[in-house]
Design a protein around this nucleic acid. Structure first.
Lengths: 336, 336
DNA sequence: ATGAAAGCGCTAACAT
DNA sequence: ATGTTAGCGCTTTCAT
């Protein structure tokens, strides 16, 4: 009786060589496909590979080649739908090229973020993509990463660090919002109220700054990127006896919290309050009402990350920035 | 002038040995912490480690130890908030023990799922956790996985495969829903309507079966786990001139789509239609109205996965099932 | 308690 | 075109 497959010794390249009656180098050649060898021998070897069900041990290969064909991706929080969508997009892009994307969520925790960097470096990833938790405090992690491996910042960057970045043009995005307001909103009946979030991240700050620049007299509440903050900020607004306005937020998750709190308290969106988000995560279009927001070019961002990773020479200090253009998506929460 | 850190040769255990004036074996011992050696030598070695900023190459270690301290997690779709929450929970649990959880999303695609298995096996993960895409069609992937490495099914299982499983008691969950309906709903004014999803997954099927068992005469619509399906199913219901009822769904994402479509069309929840979900993903509590649903014990599931992985001997065919109890969470969409 | 040396599985010089 | 061999970085016998 054959033992269970589990726990059986794995077949190695040596077993294949034995089975095919060739040297292990020949097996290696046959597998690499692009090196000089006789076609019939190659066929024979590949037959043995098939017969034995041989799969190369990628750990052995990586040790020898000093290349793992993996990149690490560190996200602040997988439960934020924007990051999970971005993660999926990046994985998809790299999987086409045979590179595996390993993902670690830092859980919005600087220490976990640092550990994630160390872990990835130890595992010899070929590159590292980071969405830093904090514009300042993540500096140490980003520095460590970039000192040992080709590293890219995505969506957010760390202040004062000379490192390539791929992201969306937050300023342009907020200008689209401002134009939308100028065009369709009567600001006498609907004064602008700003709810910020992620103040310690570059994207949160950029978005908030641009809003304040255009509406310096508006009420501003600042918190973090979360549903809960959206609700809390709304409670504060209502407690000030404000009963109408255009609430502009720096992220969809905040906007969803805002709408939830407004409607729970019997206020109408968009009649009493207009609400505008940023990101265009999946749930934006099925909220009640659907959410007017800024759509980030996820696919373009993933493509840029991919080409940067394969272009920017490892040993260079060339710092490049790819800032991609967002789009306004007008939906029910702030109609035209 | 010191060259940029980037691209510099990494320091190896050999460099540390040289610096400390000992053999590489001694460095290895010092690092492993739990082996007989003189404390002062250990201190000296660790000082050199610090001085040089040495970090072990985990690829080399893995090749030698035949153990990578990683497990693979294959999820059907990272954008489904239930799976991203579960992913985060599993990662969190394993990170405490120094094991990295590598995540690949199969994008609801059987071929990608199969490739994910192959990739993880090649990378010599110590274990594999799978949430299979399909109750039948994922058989090949699961079989391949379990034939080479300790494998666990999570949340969903493949039909007819003798492999350990951790999940939630879907039947019990739906019984909680039925009890809730029996207790609080007048079924004359609010007949039960069933919207299924994930018919090709074990959890989808179990939930749907239990519902049909208790309400055999109800209208049943079956589709997949998505917002879009919830909307579409709702359109079908409304097209039949049904204007009230209790809509029970097999997943929150469906229920959210349902509520969205109902409210868009001017129907009140819960006055006209009650809506009930399953999973209790984060957005359930901030939908408008908030969603009555079944809460899955994510933390317990992650804990169980962890202990199974560290308990069930690799070479055994012992098949174990851990079925955890869900809870009913009553919110506005179907109040008490 | 410490060092020398073998070897994990693989690829890439180098030799033939 | 194919085989032989060194060695990637590490841990672990096995000597001492």
């Amino acid at each position: 009786m054959e033992a269970s497959g589990l726990g059986r010794d794995n077949i190695t390249i040596r077993d294949v060589a034995l089975h095919a009656g060739v040297s292990i180098a020949t097996v290696s050649r046959a597998l690499s496909r692009n090196r000089p060898m006789s076609p019939q021998l190659q066929k024979k070897v590949l037959a043995s590979v098939d017969a034995l069900g041989y799969r190369p041990n990628l750990v052995g290969r990586a040790l020898r080649q000093k290349k793992t064909s993996t990149i690490g991706l560190i996200v602040p929080d997988l439960e934020n739908p924007f990051f999970s969508a971005l993660t999926q997009e990046v994985s998809r892009r790299f999987s086409k090229s045979g590179t595996d994307v390993l993902v670690i969520s830092a859980d919005n925790n600087l220490e976990l973020e640092f550990r994630a960097v160390r872990s990835f470096l130890g595992r010899q990833v070929d590159g590292l993509v980071m969405i830093p938790c904090d514009e300042i405090e993540s500096g140490e992690s980003v520095q460590l990463a970039s000192s040992s491996v080709s590293t890219l910042q995505l969506d957010r960057f760390v202040d004062g660090i000379d490192l390539s970045f791929v992201g969306c043009d937050n300023t342009a995005g907020m200008n689209l919002v401002i134009n939308h307001i100028n065009e369709f909103v009567d600001e006498n009946s609907h004064p602008v109220i700003i709810i910020g979030g992620g103040g310690s991240t570059s994207s949160g700050r950029e978005r908030l700054q641009e809003l304040i620049f255009h509406r310096p007299r508006s009420l501003v509440l600042d918190g973090n990127f979360s549903f809960a903050w959206g609700r809390q900020a709304t409670a504060e607004i209502l407690s000030k006896d404000i009963r109408s306005g255009t609430i502009v937020t720096t992220a969809d998750v905040i906007a969803l919290g805002v709408m939830s709190a407004l409607i729970t308290n019997g206020h109408s969106v968009p009649m009493d309050f207009r609400v505008i988000g940023f990101d265009d995560v999946g749930v934006a279009y099925l909220a009640n009402p659907t959410l007017t927001t800024i759509s980030q070019p996820l696919t373009d961002m993933a493509d840029s990350i991919f080409s940067f990773m394969n272009t920017v020479p490892q040993s260079s200090r060339i710092q490049a920035r790819k800032i991609l253009g967002p789009k306004l998506v007008v939906r029910e929460s702030s109609p035209a």
